[in-house]
Design a protein around this nucleic acid. Structure first.
Length: 650
RNA sequence: GCCGAAGUAGCUCAAUGGUAGAGCAACGGUUUUGUAAACCGUAGGUUGUCAGUUCAAAUCUGAUCUUCGGCUCCA
């Protein structure tokens, strides 16, 4: 084409066509629609890729304008804030070398090598100030194509930027770009090898905060350089930032380790060793409720409960293959010159139970369930309260079934997962992980297994995310992610197919035609681990459990000593109905008793003064909700029993 | 395991080389109280552990254990 086009047309989000002058960029496009839109725009999605707002558009491009309301806009903001952080650090620490600075959920980080300085929290304040100075200077982000890679490599090398050198070397054939920050007079003040995208200038960064410092490795490889990482967060407004910081604070208040101490739920002590939990009575009671609920449900759903030992001879783990692929996670011991292993999983035992008799197709499916306590060696830095430990109890079950039964069994498990999570008011999402590179088993069996899982999800009507290549080497899986009351995501249930153990143990059943066939084996856990599930529930409910899980359900608070006798009588009536009640007959004011009961997260208080004794009534106060007025004890018991039986939660 | 920080009474925290303190909790007493903290008193510590430097160590050094923030991994 010899005649220059004077206008081009692009397709907008709704697929409508928009004509704009040739040479226009995203910002021009936004302005052509409305000025207020242009002000809110931070970038564009150009043919499916996030790009700078000032990227020049071409004829027939598909363009979606990204405004500050769009969650994808944070990509621009946070990535740009990370650059400002890196510039600030290099301004303050001349020997600092920059590594990478990606966007993460709710924020960003940047890794540095600073040979002559260890960053402290005080440094963060100084760095924030320097960042603010850069923001106030309103430096421009300029995208520059690296035309001469070798020249740029020399440039990085001369500055000692070895990480950037390595990265550029690696991406030299991918049209690498540099982002240069310019001051008001157009002088370059800082640059970083970066694919973008970025906001137009540092002045757009309105609200940020540096949160923490930690260690990291270059390329997450502990053999490589160890780096200092700075985490931060960044938002479009101070209000958003403050709301986020408030959420962090709320999460901190709910931290199960903190509540665990405050409410006397559990402890870990130096004498027991790391990652080993002592369950104190209050949490132990809650656990026993979870266990009873679980056992009853499973028996109802056709599972059979089994018990298996905590240790087994090495031979078992040779057959199962754990000694090959799980060795570094197992605890070993020698007894009578025999090697024993503390079990890291329950499955080999369940397989042995299956194998102990011959099975006909008529007996299948066999669903074997156990609250099995297992021990896994975790590296010393990874333990975290109840959520990551070395000894834990899985709500484990294994289903042995035929290929024909398989989809239906998976559906049954999904339904059970749903039922259990809904009982606690937990939302969840599902993810399907498929065949990894180092998988065992042929394509035929993987296809069968994967399509079966997908079919079960579909037939059950559950949306799921696909994680290609993320399955275990022995089979595909469905993972459930839990979302708690303040929106945090936890690893929840898992359903895994296993082609490995049936093969290794030579599992068989006799089919209709008399032939020997290998059963399909499914592993599944719904709570996951009781320890971690307890942690989730503590944080989900902020320590204030639903009534059926409460060790202390009711506190009876006589106002003076005159009501103690009546209080004991009332408590007796509750105890008769298996309600867990405690009389607070201390010589304290009723206000103090109420305060203590509230802090103790006891759901109901019964307050008894002379009036109640006279009228033969009780005054009820609910945790958080306050005074509920006077009622008859029988009526109150009825309400409690109903609330307990329905497993009601607020 | 690695990088970094921390460990003082049951809990939350103070004490920067010179006799280890407070609040809450506990215990004793007084008070008999109406919907989130009555008052007085008593007791509680080999400062995680072990070694070292020093006339003297909670404080400085080293080792070790544990915890916390990350890396990595997973239930």
């Amino acid at each position: 084409m010899t005649i220059a086009q004077t206008s081009i047309s692009v397709y907008l989000k709704d697929n409508s066509k928009k004509e704009i002058p040739a040479g226009s960029n995203g910002l021009d496009l936004a302005k052509s629609i409305s000025n207020s839109l242009a002000r809110k725009c931070v970038g564009i999605l150009l043919n499916g890729e996030l790009k700078d707002l000032i990227t020049t558009l071409k004829n027939e491009d598909k363009v979606e304008l990204i405004t500050q309301e769009d969650p994808r806009s944070y990509e621009f903001l946070r990535h740009s804030t990370a650059h400002i952080l890196a510039e600030a650090v290099q301004n303050l620490f001349k020997n600092a070398k920059i590594a990478i600075g990606p966007v993460i959920e709710h924020g960003f980080y940047y890794d540095f090598e600073i040979p002559d300085h260890k960053l402290t929290p005080e440094d963060l304040l100084k760095i924030e100030q320097e960042m603010q100075r850069i923001v106030n200077e309103d430096q421009k982000f300029i995208r520059v194509n690296i035309e001469d890679v070798d020249k740029q490599l020399k440039e990085f090398e001369s500055k000692g930027e070895k990480f950037k050198t390595e990265l550029l070397q690696e991406h030299r054939n991918e049209n690498p770009t540099l982002y240069v920050l310019q001051d008001k007079s157009g002088n370059p003040v800082w640059d970083d090898l970066c694919r973008g995208p970025h906001v137009m200038s540092s002045g757009q960064i309105k609200a940020f905060k540096l949160l923490s410092i930690s260690g990291a490795y270059w390329r997450a490889d502990e053999k490589k350089e160890s780096l200092q990482r700075i985490y931060g967060t960044s938002w479009w407004s101070k209000e958003d930032l403050n709301a986020y910081l408030a959420r962090l604070e709320e999460a901190e208040k709910r931290d199960h380790r903190k509540l665990g101490r405050q409410l006397d739920f559990f402890s870990m002590q130096e004498e027991t060793g790391p990652g080993l939990i002592l369950w104190h009575p209050r949490l132990a009671f809650m656990r026993s409720q979870l266990e009873d609920f679980w056992k009853n449900l499973h028996q109802e759903k056709g599972y059979e409960l089994v018990y298996t030992p905590h240790i087994a001879k090495n031979d078992l783990w040779n057959i199962s293959g754990h000694n090959d692929f799980y060795k570094e996670n197992m605890f070993y011991m020698t007894v009578d010159e025999q090697d024993y292993v503390l079990k890291p999983m329950n499955c080999p035992f369940h397989v042995l139970i299956f194998k102990s008799t011959r099975h006909s197709y008529r007996e299948l499916p066999i669903r074997m369930a156990e609250l099995g306590t297992v021990y896994r060696y975790e590296r010393s830095g990874v333990m975290h309260g109840l959520a990551r430990v070395r000894g834990f109890t899985q709500d484990d079950a294994h289903i042995f079934c035929t290929r024909e039964q398989y989809v239906n069994e998976i559906k049954g498990v999904i339904a059970l997962v749903n039922l259990i999570y809904k009982t606690f008011g937990l939302d969840y999402t599902a993810e399907l992980s498929t065949k990894p590179k180092d998988a065992i088993g042929g394509n035929e069996i993987w296809d069968f297994a994967e399509s079966g899982l997908a079919q079960a999800l579909k037939e059950y009507g559950l949306e799921y995310k696909l994680n290609p290549g993320d399955g275990a080497f022995y089979g595909p899986k469905i993972d459930f992610k839990l979302k708690d009351a303040i929106g945090r995501i936890w690893q929840g249930a898992t359903i895994q197919l296993d082609f490995n153990l049936p093969e290794r143990f030579g599992l068989k059943y006799t089919d209709k035609d008399g032939s020997q066939k290998q059963p399909v084996m499914v592993h599944r856990a719904i709570y996951g681990a009781l320890e971690r599930f307890a942690a989730i529930l503590i944080e989900h409910f902020a320590g204030a459990f639903p009534l059926w899980l409460c060790y202390k359900q009711v506190a009876v608070l006589p106002i003076t000593d005159r009501q103690i006798e009546y209080a004991n009588k009332i408590a007796g009536l509750l105890t008769e109905k298996n309600i867990r009640v405690f009389v607070d007959d201390r010589a304290e004011s009723v206000n103090a008793k109420i305060r203590d009961a509230e802090l103790d997260k006891i759901p109901y208080m019964i307050i008894l003064g002379d009036k109640e004794v006279q009228e033969n009534l009780i005054s009820v106060r609910a945790r958080k909700r306050g005074d509920l007025g006077k009622i008859k004890i029988e009526d109150f018991i009825g309400k409690l029993v109903q609330e307990i039986n329905s497993k009601q939660f607020q």
